[in-house]
């Protein structure tokens, strides 16, 4: 019961996000807008109910289940992209290596600098 109450809150914020997207012709999905609005709402309110916390934790823990049908699609539509696998593989492997390196180095530099600044 408690979890369903929290789920209702999530659904309402999703519908609110969808409404905002359509009404203001925004390029962002309704789910993202709902996420931004619920975060701001909680910040103003200053607390999160147990119902909402358990519902969100439940949904986040089954995220993998929800994306599985999409992942399966890659096996059944693969022939559409024949001849481009080298480009896809290189972009994913090399691209991800470079972006992980960039993130770690940038965060390290800025954090160290910030801590020195404080001393």
């Amino acid at each position: 019961m408690a979890m369903l109450r929290g789920f209702l809150v999530l659904v309402l914020f999703f519908l609110l996000g969808e409404s905002l997207r359509v009404l203001f012709a925004l390029p962002v999905s309704g789910g993202v807008l709902g996420m931004v609005v619920i975060t701001l709402t909680l910040m103003v309110k200053g607390s999160v109910s147990d119902d909402l916390a358990s519902a969100s934790q439940g949904l986040i823990s089954v995220l993998v289940l929800l994306i599985m049908p999409g992942v399966v699609g890659v096996f059944f539509t693969a022939d559409q992209f024949s001849g481009q696998w080298l480009a896809v593989a290189a972009a994913l492997l090399v691209g991800t290596f470079l972006s992980v390196l960039t993130t770690l180095v940038l965060m390290k530099l800025v954090t160290v600098k910030g801590e020195r600044h404080r001393e």
């Binding site: 999530l10 914020f13 999905s29 309704g30 709902g34 619920i38 909402l52 949904l59 995220l63």
Partner: peptide
């Protein structure tokens, strides 16, 4: 359910 699940990401963020 991915829609409400995206909204749910706002709770750990808060």
């Amino acid at each position: 359910l991915l829609g409400p699940a995206t909204v749910a990401l706002g709770i750990p963020l808060y």
